[in-house]
Amino acid sequence: MSARRHVLTGAGSGIGLALAHRLADRGDELVLLARSDARARELAASFPQAQLLVADLADPGTLNGIGRQVDGAVDTLLHVAGVVDLGPVERLRLAAWEEQVTVNLTAPAVLTRELLPHVRRSRGSIVFVNSSAGLTASAGWSAYAASKFGLRALADALRAEEVDNGVRVSTVYPSRTATPMQEKVHEQEGRTYDSSRWISADTVVDTILHVVDLPADATIPDVTVRPVVPRAT
């Protein structure tokens, strides 16, 4: 398979970092988003061949016009970045609600709009790395789940809109994955974090790459990845 070009958010940590390394290791071209110049320098040290774009997903206005910084076709747009801040509705801070909806839903919508002409050119794919919280909302997860339910709706609508342009749209729903974000979640839940109980980031990456590398005659609209070990009660 010849080298392809991918635009990726969330390459600094967790699933996004593992995915960026796998794509780079196989010789694919990376275009990575970084929230600041300092973050871009850090990513450049790990991925010296990548193109770095500076934009803050927490401020979607910084994404306006970013498509003009990318030349040519894009084979895959990979939305991996996300934030989580748990809390019951009765104590949910407005700032926490707004940040999660902005980063997890609004920013992917704006970035998709900006890069869509490039993905259409290659008849490529757009992959949204969602969450099991995008399928079922639990107590304390209202803001995060709402943002992820919205992301699911965004993907479904986009899929219907772009089918005639040959753009494939897929959503991957990982359950709890052993990442720094999961460690933060456990801290917020007051639970002991044991990474061995959860899916490895590499396993989720395997799933994402299966979706990305699927031959042109088929698509996987939705796929869920769950750990084998049941959650302790």
Rank of each mutant, 00 (worst) to 15 (best):
T219C: 08
T192W: 11
L105G: 12
E42F: 06
G10T: 06
P230E: 15
V83S: 10
T9D: 02
T203P: 00
P174V: 12
V185D: 05
S36H: 00
V7Q: 14
Q182D: 10
P108H: 06
R191H: 06
S131D: 12
L53C: 03
D217K: 02
P48V: 11
L43D: 03
V80P: 01
A232N: 11
T62F: 05
A18W: 15
V225F: 12
A55V: 07
S2F: 15
F128H: 08
A55W: 02
V110E: 04
P108I: 06
D206E: 15
L53K: 04
T76C: 11
A133F: 11
E98I: 00
V163A: 14
A38R: 09
N130K: 09
M181G: 00
R176E: 10
L111V: 08
L19N: 12
E162K: 09
T9F: 00
A3L: 06
A24I: 06
E98D: 04
A146Y: 05
V7L: 15
L92D: 01
L77C: 02
R26C: 05
R22V: 15
S2G: 07
A3K: 07
V163L: 01
L8H: 00
N165V: 07
A157I: 03
G65D: 13
D28T: 09
T233G: 14
A133I: 05
Y173R: 12
D59L: 14
L135H: 02
V101E: 00
I199Q: 10
S2W: 07
G150T: 10
V185Q: 08
M181L: 15
G10P: 12
V84Q: 02
G82E: 00
G72R: 04
D217Q: 10
Q69F: 12
E99R: 15
V7S: 01
V172T: 03
T207W: 07
G16L: 00
V101I: 12
T203F: 06
A34V: 04
D37Y: 01
S46Y: 12
D25K: 15
L209W: 00
A81E: 06
G12K: 13
A58M: 05
D71G: 12
S142W: 03
S196H: 04
K184W: 05
S147M: 05
D28H: 12
A24N: 04
G72L: 08
S2D: 13
Q182K: 05
S36W: 11
I15M: 01
A40G: 09
A73S: 12
